[in-house]
């Protein structure tokens, strides 16, 4: 929005723009949200580092939920379709969002993905973000909840190293807890770090391999 134009004697002009740079994305995210809400669908943005277990977690949750309610998955991936292929084997609608060199998903890419599937009858859409702990934080997609997946293999200090990601999250899943002892990482300390950053975030420890904690995650997501 242009507010004032002021000329200075030497023909140098200053103009106030107050132009938000992330507004275009925020607007599209809002449109996505309205579309999802209109269909009674909860969009869940899954964020986390490469190898934290995002795809495996989504796969396990889809297996648990798909017979009870309509589930679809968007897989953000810079290059490969390996994650999308894994989920598609479960016969649920899957859209791969290839960002090529992009380090985050944005609302425009999600809007395109939403046009690719039939939304009727769906209850949940998992949106797997790019494995990156900084960039996706600034780009809302239109999801109702943002989940951050942390695994104990990322070390004891991973939460405090990436505080921004957690400030906007609704749920934190601490994955691979079956490896905590071998990694010499305290799950309780990771959970405490999250609490220090944002006391109302729910933290659920899981092991996708052993299947622990997954019912709790599913229940939490359905309650959103």
């Amino acid at each position: 929005m242009i507010q004032t134009i002021e000329a200075s004697p030497d023909e140098i002009y200053d103009i106030e723009l107050e132009h938000s740079l992330l507004e275009a994305n925020a607007r599209l995210a809002k449109e996505n949200r309205i579309l999802l809400d209109g269909h009674g669908i909860t969009g869940i943005d899954i964020m986390g580092a490469i190898g934290s277990g995002k795809t495996t977690l989504i796969g396990r949750l889809v297996a648990k939920l798909k017979d009870r309610l309509g589930v679809a998955v968007f897989n953000g991936d810079a290059t490969t379709s390996s994650d999308a292929d894994l989920i598609a084997a479960q016969k649920v609608p899957v859209v791969q969002i290839a960002t090529v060199n992009g380090c985050h998903l944005d609302a425009n890419l999600v809007a395109k993905a939403l046009r690719k599937i039939d939304l009727d009858g769906l209850r949940l859409i998992f949106i797997e973000n790019i494995g990156n702990l900084i960039c996706p934080a600034e780009f809302p997609l239109g999801s109702k909840a943002r989940v951050v997946v942390v695994s104990v293999t990322e070390g004891q200090y991973m939460v405090r190293k990436h505080p921004h990601m957690f400030l906007g999250a609704h749920l934190v899943v601490i994955n691979k807890v079956d490896l905590a002892e071998a990694m010499n990482v305290s799950v309780a300390q990771l959970a405490e770090d999250v609490r220090i950053l944002k006391p109302d975030i729910k933290v659920i420890p899981t092991s996708c391999k052993a299947g622990t904690g997954l019912d709790e995650v599913a229940a939490e997501l359905l309650a959103i």
């Binding site: 140098i12 002009y13 200053d14 103009i15 723009l17 107050e18 938000s20 740079l21 006391p199 109302d200």
Partner: peptide, 19 residues
Amino acid sequence: AAESTQGKECAIKTIRYMA
């Protein structure tokens, strides 16, 4: 848990140019 009320700005404030 508190909520942020300021600090998420990312905007162009002013532009200086030559006519």
